[in-house]
């Protein structure tokens, strides 16, 4: 899929959150303040459109920390292109979810 400049604000926020380092559903919910009924369906659509891709955390890592494994999401090259286009459309996106905040955590 090519760059789609008409991505909704919600989808753009989720892309920005993933880009900022919030890599699983619940952390994206916490960062964006969006409910689960919005975040997960939006991530499914973004994955279907190949803007993000997902992978499961290795079981051994989760076992070592005594927690269930997480499903992580990351941006694809197409997703990065669309996010760049969306930032032009929504200039406040970067201020809402800055990269530094994610890195600081």
């Amino acid at each position: 899929m090519g760059a789609d400049p008409k991505l909704s604000h919600t989808a753009a926020m989720i892309l920005q959150a993933i880009h900022a380092g919030y890599m699983y559903g619940f952390s994206i919910m916490e960062m964006t303040g969006l409910p689960s009924g919005t975040v997960y369906p939006a991530m499914r659509r973004l994955e279907r459109d190949e803007l993000i891709c997902s992978h499961w955390e290795r079981q051994s890592i989760a076992d070592a920390e005594q927690r269930p494994p997480r499903k992580y999401y990351k941006l694809t090259p197409a997703g990065k292109t669309v996010l760049d286009a969306s930032r032009k459309r929504y200039p406040l996106l970067e201020r809402l979810i800055p990269l530094e905040e994610a890195r600081a955590q």
Binding site: F26, M29, P35, S36, G37, T38, Y40, P41, R70
Partner: peptide, 30 residues
């Protein structure tokens, strides 16, 4: 992970439980 964040030690927080339930209800939309 949602439960871990919402858990209040040795107490039952209805606000937290309501939020967890709201989280689960989102599964229906998904």
């Amino acid at each position: 992970y949602v439960r871990r964040v919402g858990r209040v030690p040795r107490a039952l927080s209805w606000t937290a439980q309501r939020e967890i339930t709201a989280f689960c209800m989102g599964a229906f939309q998904d």
